[in-house]
Design a protein around this nucleic acid. Structure first.
Lengths: 351, 351
DNA sequence: TTGTATGCGTTATCAG
DNA sequence: CTGATAACGCATACAA
């Protein structure tokens, strides 16, 4: 632009302009400039002079100085494993949107499922005067700072740290109900993931409870992280007789798993949804905004994001609940015997 | 004055410990503590005392103070439209990884394709002593700061601002070559996007050039942002005679578009890849790490991320090229008549 | 109302 | 090699 570059034109003026520079330029005092910048009461004539000087020098507040003085940075740290996983990407997206809407900013840290790195991130975050931390981590022994407001997603740490999550239990129930409604008689529940107790594990509990209620029989196959996916295929083959699968419905703990299982079934000559219907969990959509990948229990990602942000910025810590479960809903995504649900934006285009 | 912390446990000790607290605790001077913290030469006995005090007080450097003094923050800002779009999510992911590996951190800002908001982000970023900006923006008149190192992705701004991008031109060529190799005689190129000149627009140029070379005929249908997708369907229907499509190959400027086009074709009773083969661009994979969504030209996302970070942190600005094109490659993703390429991690599981 | 002075936590410059 | 002291840019209580 019209900026001076690294050199100085006027003696005594170098690098970025500061408030004193503006004050001198406008012929007022430092405090007045500060007041103008912060929108405090200031005489109209002075304000104009200051604003003029700010424009002329292209002055920008230095947040390091401001943060040092005030102790807060209008920045919230988000700790998540990565953004390549669509569900995490969506969360990061919506949390950022919610923050920006409130005049805050997001410092993003990836844990990559690495405990060591998570602690490292936490250390950095604590050094940076962030005003809060939103963490989605599976690290059981991670020590959240006590002097910074924290909110967790999907994993409950302690009553002092609010946890926001989808209503996983009910999601499990809804899936079972749906299968029952679709006439399934023999179901399977598949999960791969952490052995730690975390909220998503309740998907199975809700599912099991509803199955019992509806009198629908079901099998369970759980894998822990590190076990090969092929175990699921072994499991399915065990239940394959004369080319027919014992199950007529499979509930997968995530859409990712559902997708893989569907590929497996396809390889075994089993058709979805004709031979077996599949329901996943999360509500992942193609390209983040097109159709669902499979029939699924949709997590209220935007609500989760809003809630996290709302809570982390909330002043009265006392009012913070320790666990917030947000309602999920079912969406038909083509892997159940019913019409696929096509999201609004997509619908018009594809017809 | 400073007396009111929220609450204090020990008399005299309030809020976060500072370097002076550590100095007092260790019985050394402030400067010595600073030296220890920054890993400078310090007498072994003193160092131990200081480290002991740091541990005891659970001291953490305050980066606001440090930034104020040094003028840099070991933070790089990334400006992208969002992270719900898989390609952007992947970029954000890999840039973060590259930064962290070098001891830097990422401040993430979403433009949401909103020019006004982009300028807002830029303002904030400039106030925060970030050490550099990596921007993926389509805003033609965005004014990048001149006093902060900048690198752009996919859109060339000026010779002073390096632009990193995939080799879009060659990607277009490769697609055409592939179609020729697969025996296609009549192709179509479909694109929707900005009318601005940006790097990805070269996909068409490379495609057209190679088509001419190989003597393959092709049609082009371009839509600009805002035009409804249904225009593509109209276009395709115009080229539909007796249930047969004029084209035997369609090159889509993005995987997203390819996906939608494939759904359209399916709705028209046209089979992919039997009746018409489709190649997209970007290399989007299911859940970010499973199989490709369609046959595609794969962007070297990780290399792009590494290059951006490398350049933004590079000290000698003089050595910065103005445009860096990184090689792309073709991957069969099931929408061309050839065996699908299954990524390593996925392969073992699905077989 | 506006100006002045002080300190936030750190690094850097010197004398010892 | 260590210790005192002066900035860094800003907000703010206090004086004018």
């Amino acid at each position: 632009m019209k900026s001076t570059g690294p050199k100085e034109k006027t003696p005594g003026r170098r690098s970025k302009p500061t408030m004193s520079d503006v004050a001198r330029e406008a012929g007022v005092s430092l405090g007045t400039v500060s007041n103008v910048v912060n929108g405090l009461k200031v005489n109209e004539a002075y304000r104009l002079k200051v604003e003029e000087a700010i424009r002329k020098l292209d002055y920008q507040v230095n947040n390091s100085g401001r943060n040092l003085k005030t102790g807060h940075s209008y920045t919230i740290a988000l700790i998540i494993p990565n953004t390549r996983t669509p569900h995490f990407a969506a969360l990061a997206n919506d949390i950022n949107v919610a923050l920006v809407r409130r005049g805050y900013h997001m410092l993003l840290s990836f844990s990559d499922y690495d405990y060591k790195q998570e602690e490292e991130m936490l250390r950095f975050v604590r050094q940076n005067n962030v005003d809060g931390i939103i963490a989605l981590t599976y690290n059981p022994r991670l020590e959240l700072p006590v002097d910074i407001p924290c909110v967790t997603i999907d994993r409950f740490f302690s009553a002092q740290v609010p946890c926001v999550t989808a209503d996983n239990y009910n999601g499990g129930r809804i899936a079972a109900e749906k299968f029952a409604e679709l006439g399934c008689r023999k179901l399977a529940f598949l999960r791969i993931g952490s052995v730690l107790t975390n909220e998503p594990n309740k998907r199975k509990d809700g599912f099991a409870a509803a199955c019992l209620e509806y009198g629908v029989d079901f099998d369970v196959k759980l894998l822990t992280d590190g076990e090969p996916m092929s175990r699921f295929e072994d499991f399915l083959r065990e239940h394959l007789h004369d080319g027919r699968l014992d199950f007529d419905g499979i509930f997968c703990a995530t859409d990712n798993l559902a997708y893989r299982v569907i590929r497996m079934l396809s390889g075994m000559g089993i058709k979805v949804p004709e031979d077996v219907q599949v329901i996943g969990f999360d509500g992942i959509r193609m390209f983040g905004d097109l159709n669902y990948i499979c029939s699924t229990i949709v997590q209220p990602v935007t609500d989760i994001a809003e809630t996290c942000v709302e809570m982390i910025l909330s002043k009265d810590l006392a009012a913070r609940p320790s666990l917030v479960c947000l309602p999920v809903r079912y969406a038909a995504g083509g892997t159940t015997r019913e019409p696929e649900e096509i999201p609004e934006e997509f619908r018009g285009d594809i017809k």
